[in-house]
């Protein structure tokens, strides 16, 4: 058998294969150029087969989270102070970071990882949050009211709690690790914009409603050793050391460590803005996750 393929036939074959293959895959439902928002399954252990909260991505909407994990959008919206939003179901995980961007006095970040932690606690699947992850006090209340928190888990998340008020955008308190009581603790608030060190304005409050969370401010940035708690089946945990890059850290401060502009730009993947720019603000304006950039920059510290 002998057969030739000449240029016209090869050109037609290539175009035909691509067009035909794509059309066929569309017919079969295999063609997708956007995430189907299906979280990967846990493959081992007692939670094998369940959706993994660690796979929640910034592009997941609250509706996607409900679809994957069965946590109602209403509960998610309540937890993250989004009840007043017109369409909370369509809010994406990465939008949370921008929403809580006013958390200037805190070293804790509310964003995608906070949502992962909340979902993990809600569905009872172990998840190790980042050391800088914060959880709104509203989320704590939702978990508490729903009876989702075991005592160990409650202890574990206390240092991560951030008091939010009036729908969530304004942050008024920052949790610390001073091992406060779980019930009716004194709460100390730090006004937005208050410098993170050197005397936060402290004012005791009633502590909000329902299950109050302990919150104290040490006047300096939060410190922690390793805080972990088990729930028997595994638990949310957070470990960490003193964060170096905070909500108000500028690029200039990072450069002052001895890190070069080129190193920073490599992390950013784009030119560095003026040195005085606040890293977190810049990340928000660029649509980047501050937590990811911060962690990468932090690794540059000599």
């Amino acid at each position: 058998m002998k057969g030739y393929i000449k240029s016209p036939l090869l050109g037609a074959l290539i175009v035909g294969l691509f067009a035909g293959g794509i059309i066929l895959s569309q017919v079969l439902g295999w063609w997708a150029t956007e995430s189907r928002k299906v979280a990967r399954k846990i493959t081992t252990g007692q939670f094998a087969g369940k959706a993994d909260p660690a796979d929640i991505r910034g592009s997941y909407s609250l509706a996607d989270v409900e679809k994957n994990f069965g946590v109602p959008v209403k509960e998610l919206a309540k937890a993250f102070g989004l009840e007043q939003e017109k369409a909370p179901a369509s809010i994406r995980a990465k939008d949370l970071e921008g929403k809580f961007a006013g958390l200037s006095a805190s070293t804790l970040e509310i964003g995608t990882d906070s949502l992962r932690l909340f979902v993990a606690l809600y569905v009872g699947i172990p998840y190790k949050a980042k050391e800088s992850t914060g959880l709104p006090d509203t989320a704590y209340r939702v978990l508490k009211e729903a009876g989702k928190l075991k005592p160990e888990e409650e202890q574990a998340i206390l240092p991560m709690l951030v008091r939010v008020s009036g729908g969530g955008a304004a942050v008024t308190a920052l949790a610390n690790t001073s091992a406060p009581a779980v019930t009716t603790p004194p709460a100390v608030s730090v006004a937005p914009g208050t410098p993170s060190s050197g005397g936060a304005s402290t004012s005791s409050t009633a502590g909000g409603t329902g299950s109050n969370i302990a919150a104290g401010v040490s006047g300096s940035d939060s410190k922690s050793g390793t805080v972990a708690s088990g729930s028997g089946s595994g638990a949310a945990s957070v470990s960490g050391t003193e964060p170096l890059i905070k909500g108000k850290t500028t690029f200039k401060e990072v450069l002052a460590w001895g890190v070069t502009k080129a190193q920073i730009e490599k992390v950013l993947g784009r030119p560095m803005p003026p040195e005085g720019t606040v890293i977190k603000d810049w990340c928000t304006s660029q649509g980047l996750e501050f937590g990811t950039i911060r962690d990468a920059l932090q690794k540059l510290k000599p």
């Binding site: 691509f18 293959g21 794509i22 895959s25 063609w31 150029t33």
Partner: peptide, 9 residues
């Protein structure tokens, strides 16, 4: 995404 697998095929 899945489209990459289709194109790979």
């Amino acid at each position: 995404h899945e489209a990459s697998l289709v194109l790979m095929g």
